[in-house]
């Protein structure tokens, strides 16, 4: 751990809407420069947690220190240091991508030419003169992220930036998010795509029903599961008997298209398969955050 003070310290925050406890005792700390993910299904309390940290909602109880300051009530001194990406429609009507960025920049007293730099960062340079309503879903998401970054904040909050995007657009956005992290920003982001968080985040908190169930680097969480590795072969490339005979194979089962070998020692299993020349169409699936979620909640993960 470094000696720089953490960017965010959240202690035991609560927020209820009537009977519904949206956030029920959440605590976490985010270090400077960290890419922190809050994961969970819809309604887990991710967005409310984020909005409390941003200062947009006042919690019923608990405390938040954002860059050493209290974010609520509205803390004008803090605002230039944080960037919040909102839903991908938070644009001025009929303005082009560049004009949106120029307008937002001016709210922070920042030179309009930053707009070009931001467009470049999110890969929208060729769409600079396109009006917001003519942009695709992915382009709008990228523009809204650019709008959150235009004043060069220290901490960036992204709420479901990849929701409702097609796979290609999601991957494009991952590059943008990585580029932001490389600029030394602290990123806090929510998603319900566990696979994505596993790839992007330094550390994740898994939330459900307003509580954090687990919080660690994704790899640590997955390793902690001690789950078997699945080696998946094409059906027919190996008989069930032969598969069961492989040293290290704990369990073997087959369906119409594939044969799955579960093992805790994948290396010898794979070398045996290689010797037999049955590597065609082979897949290796290790445990994922979805398995972690299943393990934590006892139910299948559904976004």
């Amino acid at each position: 751990m470094t000696l720089t003070p953490p960017a965010i310290v959240v202690e035991d925050i609560h927020k209820a809407y009537g009977e519904l406890k949206a956030v029920d005792g959440v605590s976490f700390t985010v270090a400077e420069g960290e890419f922190f993910g809050i994961l969970g299904p819809n309604g887990a309390g991710k967005t409310t947690t984020l909005e409390i940290v941003e200062g947009l909602r006042v919690p019923d109880g608990g405390s938040v220190r954002l860059l050493g300051e209290n974010p609520f009530p509205r803390n004008v001194a803090l605002l230039p240091r944080i960037g919040v990406q909102l839903q991908a429609s938070a644009f001025f009507e009929k303005l082009t991508a560049r004009e949106q960025l120029e307008t937002f920049a001016s709210l922070y007293g920042i030179d309009a030419k930053t707009a070009g730099e931001m467009l470049d960062l999110v890969g929208l340079t060729d769409k600079a003169d396109t009006r917001e309503d003519k942009l695709s879903g992915g382009q709008r998401q990228r523009l809204s992220i650019a709008c959150a970054l235009v004043h060069d904040p220290d901490v960036v909050f992204l709420d479901e930036p990849t929701a409702a995007l097609d796979p290609q657009a999601r991957r494009n956005l991952w590059d943008v998010l990585r580029a932001i992290q490389e600029r030394g920003k602290t990123i806090v982001y929510t998603t319900h795509y566990l696979d994505e968080a596993e790839i992007l985040c330094d550390r994740v908190a898994i939330m459900d029903h307003g509580r954090i169930l687990a919080m660690d680097p994704p790899a640590t969480l997955v390793r902690g599961l001690d789950a078997p590795t699945h080696v998946i072969l094409e059906r027919g490339s190996l008989s069930l008997e032969d598969a069961r005979a492989i040293a290290g194979a704990d369990d073997v089962h087959a369906d119409e298209v594939s044969l799955t070998i579960s093992t805790r020692t994948p290396a010898p299993v794979l070398s045996t398969l290689a010797e037999r020349g049955t590597l065609d169409g082979l897949q290796v699936r290790t445990a994922t955050l979805e398995d972690v979620f299943l393990d934590l909640t006892g139910r299948e993960y559904r976004a």
């Binding site: 509205r74 004008v76 605002l79 909102l86 839903q87 938070a90 644009f91 709210l107 922070y108």
Partner: peptide, 17 residues
């Protein structure tokens, strides 16, 4: 209405103005 619904008001509230 449009600015509230589309969160432009929220965006403005997050800016130091």
């Amino acid at each position: 209405v449009n600015w509230r619904r589309k969160q432009v008001l929220r965006r403005l509230r997050l800016a130091p103005i």
